[in-house]
Design a protein around this nucleic acid. Structure first.
Length: 827
DNA sequence: TTCGTGTGGTAGC
DNA sequence: TATCGCTACCACACGAA
């Protein structure tokens, strides 16, 4: 649609095309706006903002500002998750529950962001009537702002804003993405990939990065004699970073402040200065780029990079380069110190870096001149002076596993390599880790590390996305945890949307207080000693739908059977990521008409369709009942007890009637979620339909084929009976918590069998699509319910995808008209 | 043997 | 008043088919 206007309804694509057209029109207007007004700072980048009700400034003005400053304007809010922010003066009572998980802000937030030129925290601008606004009012007068607990809506963002480890991880991810983007732009294909090991590798790393930067910001010289540490505050907070003056007292990163202060009473504790770390890091990478001395600069972390030179340089030139880098970085960062290890392999460069610290550089060459410069060393020298733990990827666990029975002192690499042959290493540590260590002992890079150099595209590509919180997790009830999981999923979904990706496997990981650990650990709101459990779910079809993901995660939480009060940590992971553009996004389906090859016979057509378009299967690869059976057998494992879930009793309504309304509702809610996880509607209600009065044999459509046998669903052959079952199934599950995935899988398989029956089966397929659409239209009032969205998504992603495929295959033979739900309010 | 799942280890300050 | 114990990725063990 070149003109950007909605096309008239053409068969079953009409609804989608209408919306695609409408969105294109709006997008074109917004693009035009950006063009006319020129580029502005991208303050609202990644934000999807919806404006609700009457506002001041009005909706159009807010829209203009948001769009011009990099944001996306959400015109129609089909569901709360469509927007990251909702702008409203007040939250209508009817929307309070629905919007509970949203960032609902006053228009003042938009204006304040524009004034300050950056995205500001939303909580201080929470709209009247929201929980967040109530929290702010309650804590007014506190200079710190509201103290949020894990039960509060803003907790996740607040926690991440202060978490050093979260910052380190997100910076690293951003650097990798930036590298990849640059690499893909400048190195079309992989022509410049290194085929042989590069000549020189420089491993560059800041000395005590946080401590130095925070120190400089607080007015200390970078090499001050004053012992400094960066921490949040009190005695049980972690030392994130300390300078060398503090290290001389025995203070180490990760140590508690109370212990550090015992070792060094003069210790100066400095606050985190995340903005400054980011600024210095940017300067650091700029220096490495500006030097134009490297064939590649690989990011390792915010303050650490591996630089590669792919041409031979003499030792003196390497030394001069190290000196130059150190001087440039110091100049551009207000005096920050980097140390450098230079060697022909990653592992030797890393060891050289370890020995170069603090405030130095080392060049490792095979045969240094005897009595020459002390900054030039041999591999043997590094092996004799570095410890096993200095090797990359060798942490405490592996070192202990290997050196069991050899404890007593810190072993050097030279000593340990004498103790074990390659085969002994493999026996003790496993095939890959053992071989890796054997390689490292020879100064050679292991397969995994050298992937970074050989195939950076694969090495730096993102394969998963996750969020984890193991601090401040204290819940009293499962509904509170559900609300938290909703928010965490929403957080991740907004991330995955920014990446334009979808996921087809999700994992819930929890930390549960160990039975012998105290209720409250020594660290304030810490996790203490915990057992960890995880549960993964295959979604079958890649999605970014927060409702679908959230429902799975909540069901997974129930399967892990952790009492609410025992929970100390929660993580949600998205695995098997795919580009959103290549997966079938709802309402963004594209019919591949241009790729259709003319086929001569229906038989050929089917053959081609099978090879070119494998059927999409929406299934649950780990049926819940299998999961229960598997875990019943492993009684010696620390896995939780599922037996109470195996026999979830029916609810006694008369008993519930006597309970307080809140409590009764909570129990009903729990029961619905358990039921959804356990129950299959199709299994339980098939008999009812079989014995019903619907249909008669003369109405059989499907089994009349002369070539093909009857296509059954749930042992039913009459299409009327099947439709009756499906109608009842949809109606029931719309009222409750949506369809069971195994049921959907069975139904999808039925649809696929219809398709493989050829064009004659098409009316049956079309009839099923219409039936689902009709049911959704009938139950339009459930439009806000999760179950409604699940059915809607199934219709769009699974059923319509199949109809599209058939349209492509059979359009010459059969007229396909399908008008998708819902009715559209046309402009 | 191969595959999927759950668990655990490592790195950065 | 505390305090902000993340995240991506790989490898291993084990069980099922």
């Amino acid at each position: 649609m070149d003109d950007g206007h909605a096309a008239p309804n053409q068969g079953f694509d009409g609804y989608r095309e209408y919306f695609v057209g409408k969105r294109q029109l709006q997008k074109a207007q917004e693009d035009q706006l950006r063009e006319v007004c020129g580029a502005r700072p991208s303050i609202f980048r990644g934000c999807r903002v919806h404006v609700n009700g009457r506002t001041d400034p009005d909706r159009e003005e807010l829209r203009r500002e948001i769009v011009m400053h990099g944001g996306t304007f959400v015109h129609y809010l089909a569901r709360p998750s469509d927007a990251t922010h909702i702008v409203a003066e007040h939250v209508p009572t009817a929307k309070r529950r629905l919007w509970r998980v949203c960032k609902v802000v006053r228009p003042a937030w938009v204006l304040a962001c524009l004034r300050s030129g950056k995205l500001l925290p939303w909580q201080p601008y929470a709209a009247a009537g929201t929980e967040a606004a109530a929290g702010i009012v309650a804590s007014a007068g506190s200079p710190q702002g509201p103290r949020l607990t894990c039960k509060d809506p803003g907790f996740i963002e607040d926690f991440f804003a202060k978490s050093r480890l979260h910052h380190l991880s997100t910076w690293k991810a951003a650097l990798r993405e930036k590298f990849l983007d640059r690499y893909l732009r400048t190195n079309e294909g992989a022509l410049n990939d290194l085929r042989a090991p590069p000549a020189h590798i420089l491993h560059v790393d800041f000395d005590c990065f946080f401590a130095t930067v925070s120190g400089i910001k607080a007015g200390y010289q970078s090499k001050t004699e004053v012992p400094l540490a960066v921490c949040h505050g009190g005695s049980s907070s972690d030392v994130a970073s300390c300078n060398y003056a503090a290290r001389e007292c025995g203070i180490r990163n990760g140590m508690w402040v109370s212990k550090a202060q015992e070792l060094c009473p003069n210790l100066v504790c400095l606050p985190y200065t995340y903005d400054a770390y980011e600024t210095v890091s940017n300067s650091f990478y700029e220096v490495l780029e500006d030097l134009k001395a490297f064939d590649a600069v690989y990011p390792i972390s915010v303050d650490e990079a591996v630089c590669v030179i792919d041409r031979p340089l003499d030792t003196l030139s390497c030394q001069e380069l190290c000196i130059r880098i150190r001087a440039e970085v110091a100049e551009r960062t207000g005096g920050c110190v980097v140390s450098i290890g230079c060697a022909p392999s990653l592992v030797l460069a890393r060891l050289a870096l370890k020995r170069a610290k603090p405030d130095g550089y080392l060049v490792c060459v095979k045969e240094p001149i005897k009595g020459g410069d002390t900054q030039v060393v041999s591999p043997a020298h590094l092996f004799e002076t570095c410890t096993l733990r200095d090797l990359p990827g060798i942490g405490r666990a592996i070192a202990e596993k290997l050196l069991l029975g050899f404890t007593g002192h810190e072993h050097t690499i030279a000593q340990v390599s004498q103790l074990f042959s390659r085969s002994e290493l493999i026996t003790r540590l496993g095939s890959i880790t053992g071989a890796k260590l054997a390689d490292l002992f020879q100064g050679l890079d292991d397969v995994e590390s050298s992937r970074m150099l050989r195939n950076p595209r694969a090495y730096f590509a993102r394969k998963s996305l996750s969020a984890e919180i193991n601090w401040g997790i204290r819940f009293d009830s499962v509904p509170e945890i559900d609300a938290f999981l909703d928010r965490l999923v929403q957080y991740l979904v907004s991330k995955i949307n920014e990446l334009c990706m979808t996921t087809s496997q999700i994992v819930l990981k929890i930390a549960r207080r160990s039975s012998d650990a105290p209720i409250e650990p020594p660290k304030y709101l810490g996790m203490g000693d915990c057992d960890s459990f995880s549960k993964s779910c295959q979604l079958g079809l890649a999605t970014n739908n927060p409702g679908v993901i959230s429902a799975e995660i909540k069901a997974a939480f129930r399967m892990l059977s952790c009492p609410a009060k025992e929970l100390r940590g929660i993580a949600v992971q998205f695995l098997k990521l795919r580009e959103a553009s290549t997966s079938h996004m709802p309402r963004q389906l594209r019919l591949p008409f241009s790729t259709i090859k003319p086929l001569e016979t229906p038989k050929n057509r089917m053959k081609a369709s099978v090879t070119e378009l494998p059927p999409v299967v929406y299934k649950r690869a780990t049926p819940i009942k299998d999961f229960f059976e598997r875990h019943k057998r492993t009684s010696n494992s620390p896995s939780p007890d599922f037996t109470h879930m195996m026999s979830a009793p029916a609810l006694c309504e008369s008993f519930l009637g006597e309970l307080p309304t809140d409590l009764a509702e909570e129990i009903r809610r729990e029961h619905r979620i358990y039921q959804k996880a356990r129950s299959s509607y199709l299994q339980s209600s098939r008999k009812k339909v079989e014995t019903g009065v619907h249909g008669n044999t003369s109405e059989h459509i499907l089994e009349n084929s002369e070539i093909l046998g009857p296509i059954t669903f749930q042992n039913l052959t009459s299409q009327e009976k099947i439709k009756s079952l499906v109608r009842e199934w949809i109606s029931q599950t719309l009222r409750s918590d949506g369809p069971n995935h195994e049921d959907l899988s069975l139904f999808t398989s039925y649809l696929d069998r219809l398709i493989s029956g050829g064009p004659r089966r098409l009316p049956a397929l079309l009839s099923m699509a219409r039936l689902i659409s009709d049911q959704l239209r009938i139950h339009e009032s459930y439009g806000d319910k999760q179950s409604f969205h699940e059915w809607e998504e199934y219709l769009v992603r699974v059923v319509l995808v199949r109809l599209n495929r058939c349209k492509q295959l059979y359009t010459q033979n059969v007229e396909i008209l399908f008008d998708i739900y819902p009715q559209i309010d046309r402009p």
